[in-house]
Amino acid sequence: MDINLLTLTSILFVGAVVAGLIGALSGLGGGVIIVPLLTILLKVDIKYAIGTALVSVIATSSGAAAAYVKEGYSNVRIGMFLEVATTIGAVTGAWVAGWLPAETIAIVFGFVLLGSVAMALRGHPEGEIGEKPDPLALKLQLNGTFPTPNGLQSYCPTHVPGGWAMMFVAGILSGLLGIGSGALKVLAMDQIMKLPFKVSTTTSNFMIGVTAAASAGIYLNRGYIDPVLCMPVLLGVLLGALLGSKILAHAKVGVLRVVFNIVLAALAVQMIYSGLTGSL
C-alpha cells in the first residue's frame, strides 16, 4: 500500500488494539490474529508479519503471566520442565521456517488457526483432575495445589512424557508461525497430563513468553523484526489485551466469542487460499 509511515502506524495501532481485544475475548491470543492482519489486510510480507507477531506474543503473555503467577495458579516447575520441550521446539521451528517457502508457511498457519478455532469453540470438556501420584511426576515435583472457593486443591499430573512430546510440537509451531501455540499447550496439560483447566491455561500463558523468545532471537538475527511495524503492533496488542481482560471480568461474552471465532476461521481459510494460489 502506498501510504506514509504515520498512516501505516495509525492503521497498525488500531488493528493491533482490535487484535489484542479479539485475542483476549476469543481465547486464542494475539499472535494468531496479527499474522493474518498484516499479511492479508495490509499485504505485509509474511516474514515481517511473523517477526512482529512473535514480539507482541512475548508482550501479552508476559503481561498476563505477571498477574497469574501472583494469584498462585501457574505451576512454575511444570512450566520450566515443559519449557525444555517448547524452547527446543521453537528453535527447530524457526530453523525450519528459514527454508520453507512463504506459501507453505501460510497454509500450515491456516490449518493451525482452524484447529485452534475448533478447540476454542468446543470449549473445555470437564476433564478429570489427576490426583493419583504418578512416580515420574513426583520425582520431578510436578504436583501442586491451586486456590478454589473451597480452599486449596491438590493435583498431580499424569502421562508426563506424552505431555512433553505435545509441548515439543507446540514449540515447533510457535517458532514456525510466530504464534504462542496456547491452544496446543493447554491441550497438552489439560487433556494429556490431566491438570486442572485453570492451572493449564495460566501455566501455558507463563510459558508462551519463553517459548516465543527462543525463536525471536533467531528471527531478530535474520532481520525479520522491524521497528516500524513492531512499535504500533506491540503497543496496540498490549492495550487491546488489557481492555479484553477488563471486559472478560465484567461481562458475559458467549455470543461475541463465537462471532470472533467465525471471523478467525474465515481468516484461516483466506490464509490457506492465499498460500495455495501463491497470492501472498
Partner: peptide, 17 residues
Amino acid sequence: GTQRHDYSVFRGEPREY
C-alpha cells in the same frame, strides 16, 4: 512519519538492528 516504505517485499533489517 512522512517517509514511505514497501513492506510487501522482504528485504530484511539492516545489520545493526
